[in-house]
Simulated assay, not measured.
Amino acid sequence: MINGGTGLVGLLGHPVKHSLSPVMHNAALQAMERNWRYLALPCSEERLAAVLEGLHAVGCHGLNVTIPHKQTVAALCRDLSPLAQRLGAVNTLIPRDDGGWHGHNTDVEGFLAPLGARDNWAGRHAVVIGYGGSAKAVVAGLQSLNLATITLVGRRATGLDGFLKGMATADAPLRSCLDSDPALTTAIAHADLIVNTTPVGMNQHDEAGAIPLGKELWTQLPTQATLYDLIYTPRPTPWLQYGHGRGHRCIDGLEMLVQQGAASLRLWSHSDTVPVETMRSAAEAALKP
Rank of each mutant, 00 (worst) to 15 (best):
I2G: 06
G5N: 13
G7N: 03
L8M: 11
L8S: 09
L11M: 11
P15W: 09
K17R: 15
H18S: 09
S19D: 01
S19T: 00
L20P: 00
S21M: 00
P22L: 09
H25F: 07
L29M: 07
Q30P: 01
R34C: 02
W36V: 01
R37Y: 03
L41H: 13
P42L: 11
S44F: 10
R47I: 10
V51Q: 04
E53K: 10
H56V: 01
P68E: 08
P68L: 06
H69E: 01
K70R: 03
T72D: 06
T72A: 14
A74T: 00
L76R: 06
L76F: 08
L76E: 05
D79C: 14
L83M: 10
L87P: 04
A89V: 07
T92P: 02
L93E: 04
P95C: 08
R96V: 03
D98W: 10
G100L: 08
H102K: 11
G103N: 07
V108R: 05
L112K: 06
L112H: 05
A113K: 12
L115M: 00
G116R: 02
G116F: 05
R118V: 03
N120Y: 06
W121Y: 02
A122V: 02
V128Y: 00
G132R: 09
G133K: 08
V138R: 06
A140R: 11
A140G: 12
L147Q: 03
A148E: 14
T149W: 11
I150T: 12
I150R: 07
L152R: 09
V153F: 05
V153C: 03
G154C: 08
G154F: 10
G154A: 13
R156L: 05
A157C: 12
T158I: 11
T158W: 09
G162I: 02
L164D: 04
G166V: 00
G166P: 02
G166Y: 10
G166C: 10
M167W: 01
D171V: 04
D171S: 14
P173Q: 03
L174I: 01
R175V: 14
C177F: 12
S180W: 02
T186W: 10
A187Q: 13
A191C: 12
T197V: 03
P199C: 07
G201N: 04
G201F: 01
M202V: 14
M202Y: 10
M202A: 15
H205T: 15
D206Y: 04
D206Q: 15
D206L: 14
A208L: 14
G209E: 13
L213I: 02
E216M: 07
W218D: 13
T223N: 15
Q224G: 13
Y228L: 02
L230V: 12
T237K: 13
W239H: 12
G243Y: 08
R246H: 15
R246F: 06
R249W: 04
G253L: 00
G253H: 05
E255M: 11
L257N: 11
V258I: 14
V258N: 09
Q259E: 13
Q260L: 00
A263R: 05
L265G: 01
R266K: 15
S269W: 07
T273V: 07
P275A: 11
V276H: 09
T278Y: 05
M279Y: 09
R280L: 15
A285I: 04
A286N: 03
A286Q: 08
A286S: 10
A286L: 00
